[in-house]
Design a protein around this nucleic acid. Sequence first.
DNA 1: AGAAGGATTCTCT
DNA 2: GAGAATCCTTCTT
Length: 189
Amino acid sequence: MTLEALFCRPTLEVAPALLGATLHKEDVVLRIVEVEAYLPGDSAAHASKGRTPRNAPMWGPPGHLYVYLCYGLHQMLNLVTEPDGVPAAVLIRGAVVLAGHETVQARRGGRLDCIGPGKVGAALGLDTTWSARPLGEGLSIELNGDPGPIATSPRIGIDYALPADRLAPYRFFLPKALPPRRDRRRRAG
DNA sequence: AGAAGGATTCTCT
DNA sequence: GAGAATCCTTCTT
Protein backbone atom coordinates (compact mmCIF):
# COMPACT_ATOMS: atom_id res chain seq x y z
CA MET A 1 0.00 0.00 0.00
CA THR A 2 1.30 3.46 -0.83
CA LEU A 3 1.61 6.10 1.83
CA GLU A 4 -1.02 8.15 0.04
CA ALA A 5 -3.47 5.24 0.16
CA LEU A 6 -2.75 4.64 3.82
CA PHE A 7 -3.40 8.22 4.89
CA CYS A 8 -6.01 9.25 2.31
CA ARG A 9 -8.77 7.68 4.38
CA PRO A 10 -11.11 8.70 7.21
CA THR A 11 -8.98 9.82 10.14
CA LEU A 12 -10.85 7.58 12.56
CA GLU A 13 -9.70 4.60 10.47
CA VAL A 14 -6.13 5.79 10.06
CA ALA A 15 -5.50 6.59 13.73
CA PRO A 16 -5.92 3.08 15.18
CA ALA A 17 -4.14 1.61 12.16
CA LEU A 18 -1.02 3.52 13.17
CA LEU A 19 -0.79 1.74 16.52
CA GLY A 20 2.12 -0.68 16.44
CA ALA A 21 3.66 1.03 13.43
CA THR A 22 7.26 2.18 13.69
CA LEU A 23 8.74 5.61 13.02
CA HIS A 24 12.29 5.68 11.69
CA LYS A 25 14.64 8.66 11.75
CA GLU A 26 18.41 8.34 11.68
CA ASP A 27 19.24 5.56 14.14
CA VAL A 28 16.06 6.00 16.18
CA VAL A 29 13.11 3.61 15.84
CA LEU A 30 9.92 4.28 17.81
CA ARG A 31 6.90 2.00 18.09
CA ILE A 32 3.67 4.00 18.22
CA VAL A 33 1.46 3.09 21.17
CA GLU A 34 -0.82 6.13 21.55
CA VAL A 35 -2.45 8.49 19.02
CA GLU A 36 -5.28 11.00 18.77
CA ALA A 37 -7.49 11.81 15.78
CA TYR A 38 -8.27 15.42 14.84
CA LEU A 39 -11.09 15.55 12.34
CA PRO A 40 -12.54 18.01 9.83
CA GLY A 41 -15.02 20.25 11.63
CA ASP A 42 -13.53 19.28 14.99
CA SER A 43 -13.56 22.13 17.52
CA ALA A 44 -10.51 20.59 19.21
CA ALA A 45 -8.43 20.75 16.02
CA HIS A 46 -6.21 23.68 15.10
CA ALA A 47 -7.93 23.74 11.74
CA SER A 48 -11.20 24.80 13.37
CA LYS A 49 -9.89 28.37 13.73
CA GLY A 50 -9.28 28.63 10.02
CA ARG A 51 -6.25 28.20 7.85
CA THR A 52 -3.07 29.95 8.97
CA PRO A 53 0.57 29.56 7.99
CA ARG A 54 1.14 27.29 10.95
CA ASN A 55 -1.70 24.82 10.42
CA ALA A 56 -1.77 24.92 6.61
CA PRO A 57 -0.19 21.45 6.34
CA MET A 58 -3.42 19.99 7.77
CA TRP A 59 -5.08 20.86 4.46
CA GLY A 60 -2.17 19.45 2.51
CA PRO A 61 -1.47 16.06 1.00
CA PRO A 62 -2.11 12.99 3.17
CA GLY A 63 1.00 11.35 4.51
CA HIS A 64 2.80 14.63 5.14
CA LEU A 65 3.92 15.95 8.53
CA TYR A 66 2.35 18.69 10.59
CA VAL A 67 4.77 19.74 13.34
CA TYR A 68 3.99 22.65 15.63
CA LEU A 69 5.43 24.17 18.77
CA CYS A 70 3.31 23.87 21.90
CA TYR A 71 3.78 25.92 25.08
CA GLY A 72 6.87 27.40 23.52
CA LEU A 73 8.92 24.24 23.96
CA HIS A 74 7.28 21.03 22.77
CA GLN A 75 7.45 19.85 19.17
CA MET A 76 4.22 18.00 18.38
CA LEU A 77 4.21 15.47 15.55
CA ASN A 78 1.07 14.93 13.49
CA LEU A 79 0.53 12.89 10.33
CA VAL A 80 -1.89 14.46 7.85
CA THR A 81 -4.90 12.41 6.77
CA GLU A 82 -7.90 12.67 4.42
CA PRO A 83 -7.78 13.90 0.81
CA ASP A 84 -6.02 17.09 -0.20
CA GLY A 85 -8.07 20.08 0.96
CA VAL A 86 -9.72 18.30 3.90
CA PRO A 87 -8.06 19.42 7.16
CA ALA A 88 -7.34 16.50 9.49
CA ALA A 89 -4.41 14.77 11.16
CA VAL A 90 -3.35 12.17 13.70
CA LEU A 91 -1.28 13.32 16.68
CA ILE A 92 1.41 10.86 17.75
CA ARG A 93 1.02 10.93 21.52
CA GLY A 94 3.15 8.08 22.75
CA ALA A 95 5.80 5.61 21.64
CA VAL A 96 8.32 3.06 22.85
CA VAL A 97 11.98 3.18 21.85
CA LEU A 98 13.03 0.11 19.82
CA ALA A 99 16.43 1.39 18.60
CA GLY A 100 18.70 4.38 18.99
CA HIS A 101 18.43 4.44 22.76
CA GLU A 102 21.57 6.51 23.18
CA THR A 103 20.36 9.14 20.73
CA VAL A 104 17.00 9.36 22.48
CA GLN A 105 18.62 9.70 25.89
CA ALA A 106 20.83 12.49 24.60
CA ARG A 107 17.77 14.32 23.27
CA ARG A 108 15.58 13.60 26.31
CA GLY A 109 17.93 14.67 29.07
CA GLY A 110 18.90 11.13 30.00
CA ARG A 111 15.38 9.73 29.86
CA LEU A 112 14.06 7.06 27.53
CA ASP A 113 10.29 7.16 27.95
CA CYS A 114 8.31 8.65 25.09
CA ILE A 115 4.77 8.60 26.47
CA GLY A 116 3.53 12.10 25.71
CA PRO A 117 3.53 14.03 22.45
CA GLY A 118 6.29 16.43 23.44
CA LYS A 119 8.52 13.52 24.33
CA VAL A 120 7.94 11.87 20.94
CA GLY A 121 8.96 15.05 19.13
CA ALA A 122 12.03 15.40 21.30
CA ALA A 123 13.07 11.75 20.88
CA LEU A 124 12.92 12.10 17.10
CA GLY A 125 14.74 15.43 17.16
CA LEU A 126 11.93 17.18 15.30
CA ASP A 127 11.20 20.88 15.03
CA THR A 128 8.81 23.01 13.03
CA THR A 129 11.08 23.00 9.99
CA TRP A 130 9.84 19.44 9.49
CA SER A 131 6.26 20.61 9.12
CA ALA A 132 4.68 20.02 5.69
CA ARG A 133 7.43 17.62 4.68
CA PRO A 134 6.39 14.26 3.27
CA LEU A 135 6.89 11.04 5.16
CA GLY A 136 9.74 9.01 3.72
CA GLU A 137 12.23 11.87 3.45
CA GLY A 138 14.22 11.73 6.65
CA LEU A 139 11.34 10.46 8.75
CA SER A 140 9.60 7.30 7.56
CA ILE A 141 6.91 4.99 8.85
CA GLU A 142 6.52 1.24 8.62
CA LEU A 143 3.34 -0.69 9.36
CA ASN A 144 3.66 -3.85 11.36
CA GLY A 145 1.33 -6.66 12.25
CA ASP A 146 -1.65 -6.75 14.55
CA PRO A 147 -0.60 -4.80 17.66
CA GLY A 148 -3.09 -6.57 19.93
CA PRO A 149 -5.93 -5.05 21.96
CA ILE A 150 -6.74 -1.37 21.32
CA ALA A 151 -8.44 0.91 23.85
CA THR A 152 -10.04 4.31 23.36
CA SER A 153 -10.75 7.35 25.51
CA PRO A 154 -11.52 11.04 25.16
CA ARG A 155 -8.59 13.17 24.03
CA ILE A 156 -6.18 14.84 26.45
CA GLY A 157 -5.74 18.55 27.05
CA ILE A 158 -8.58 19.93 24.93
CA ASP A 159 -10.77 21.60 27.56
CA TYR A 160 -11.34 24.46 25.15
CA ALA A 161 -13.28 22.20 22.74
CA LEU A 162 -17.05 21.86 22.51
CA PRO A 163 -18.45 19.15 24.81
CA ALA A 164 -19.28 16.74 21.99
CA ASP A 165 -15.72 16.92 20.68
CA ARG A 166 -14.17 16.98 24.14
CA LEU A 167 -15.89 13.73 25.09
CA ALA A 168 -15.55 11.89 21.77
CA PRO A 169 -13.41 8.72 22.02
CA TYR A 170 -10.79 9.85 19.52
CA ARG A 171 -7.76 8.74 21.54
CA PHE A 172 -6.48 5.28 20.65
CA PHE A 173 -3.80 3.40 22.56
CA LEU A 174 -2.33 0.01 23.32
CA PRO A 175 -3.18 -0.52 27.00
CA LYS A 176 -0.51 -3.16 27.49
CA ALA A 177 2.19 -0.71 26.43
CA LEU A 178 0.93 2.29 28.37
CA PRO A 179 1.32 3.03 32.09
CA PRO A 180 -1.70 4.64 33.78
CA ARG A 181 -1.74 8.41 33.46
CA ARG A 182 -0.95 10.28 36.64
CA ASP A 183 -3.36 13.13 35.87
CA ARG A 184 -6.09 10.64 35.07
CA ARG A 185 -5.93 8.58 38.22
CA ARG A 186 -8.90 8.92 40.50
CA ARG A 187 -8.42 9.24 44.16
CA ALA A 188 -8.55 5.91 45.87
CA GLY A 189 -11.46 5.38 48.06
C1' DA B 1 3.00 47.16 18.50
C1' DG B 2 0.95 44.60 22.23
C1' DA B 3 -1.42 40.94 24.41
C1' DA B 4 -3.17 36.31 25.22
C1' DG B 5 -2.87 31.59 25.29
C1' DG B 6 -1.51 26.87 24.07
C1' DA B 7 -3.27 19.09 21.27
C1' DT B 8 2.84 19.82 27.61
C1' DT B 9 6.49 18.36 30.77
C1' DC B 10 9.02 18.56 34.86
C1' DT B 11 9.99 19.40 39.67
C1' DC B 12 8.76 19.99 44.19
C1' DT B 13 5.52 19.25 48.05
C1' DG C 1 -1.71 18.64 43.44
C1' DA C 2 0.23 22.90 42.09
C1' DG C 3 3.11 25.91 39.60
C1' DA C 4 6.96 27.14 36.54
C1' DA C 5 9.21 26.89 32.16
C1' DT C 6 9.22 29.15 27.55
C1' DC C 7 8.20 31.42 22.88
C1' DC C 8 5.71 31.20 18.78
C1' DT C 9 1.28 32.12 16.53
C1' DT C 10 -2.66 34.64 16.13
C1' DC C 11 -5.77 38.22 17.12
C1' DT C 12 -6.55 42.90 18.51
C1' DT C 13 -5.35 48.13 18.70
